[in-house]
């Protein structure tokens, strides 16, 4: 495993994600790509064993609404992890990453963004590195952590959700105050 991985290698890899990894994941009778098979291949490429039936089960779900995005993100992550940077990495750590952190990520961001959006590419690349206890070349642990925190989309959604209501109300009020009809006011018996 590369101990001083270059972030740019990984983000560029994600940007160039091939169509195969962007195809529809299989859910029940729909979709093309059998995600558990792809994950299994990845495990073997990392030097471990193929997935057992039990281990593959989480990737064979059928509820599209709940799982489709996550399965799509999983495919993209598999593409990422098959980079030379990760060769020889711990398959267990990767497997855990796919089931836990990647789920959180997929809950707030549509899969294609991890290919098209520079911030999301960087976030996924960094999270992937972190999953294997790696960090980008030239960064201290604090720097790497801080950068990851800055890119944390889940955290940002939470803050935005909290801020939006207040911001929207403030905007509505400013608008109401600026309306022409508001300016005309209403008649009153005395003026100050």
């Amino acid at each position: 495993m590369n101990n001083a991985p270059l972030l740019e290698t990984l983000t560029r890899r994600l940007a160039e994600c091939p169509a195969d990894f962007l195809a529809e994941p299989r859910l029940g009778k729909q979709g093309l790509v059998q995600v558990d098979a792809v994950v299994s291949d990845l495990m073997r490429a990392l030097g471990g064993a193929a997935l057992t039936t039990e281990q593959a089960a989480p990737f064979r779900v059928t509820n599209a609404k709940q799982y489709r995005n996550w399965l799509s993100v999983t495919l993209i992550a598999c593409w990422l992890f098959s980079d030379a940077t990760f060769s020889g990495g711990d398959g267990h750590q990767v497997y855990q990453f796919l089931l836990s952190q990647l789920r959180e990520l997929a809950a707030v961001t549509p899969a294609p963004k991890f290919v098209t959006d520079p911030d999301r590419r960087e976030e996924l690349a960094r999270l992937g590195l972190k999953a294997l206890d790696l960090r980008p070349a030239g960064e201290t642990p604090e720097q790497a952590q801080d950068r990851l925190a800055t890119l944390n989309s889940a955290e940002r959604q939470r803050v935005i959700a909290a801020a939006r209501a207040a911001e929207e109300r403030a905007r509505q009020i400013r608008e109401a105050l600026a309306k022409k009809e508001a300016e005309e006011a209403a008649d009153k018996w005395t003026r100050e």
């Binding site: 809950a107 707030v108 961001t109 911030d119 989309s153 959604q157 935005i160």
Partner: peptide, 13 residues
Amino acid sequence: MFDPELSGLDSDE
């Protein structure tokens, strides 16, 4: 924060 492009909040999500 209301611009889906910038906030990252997509209409689907």
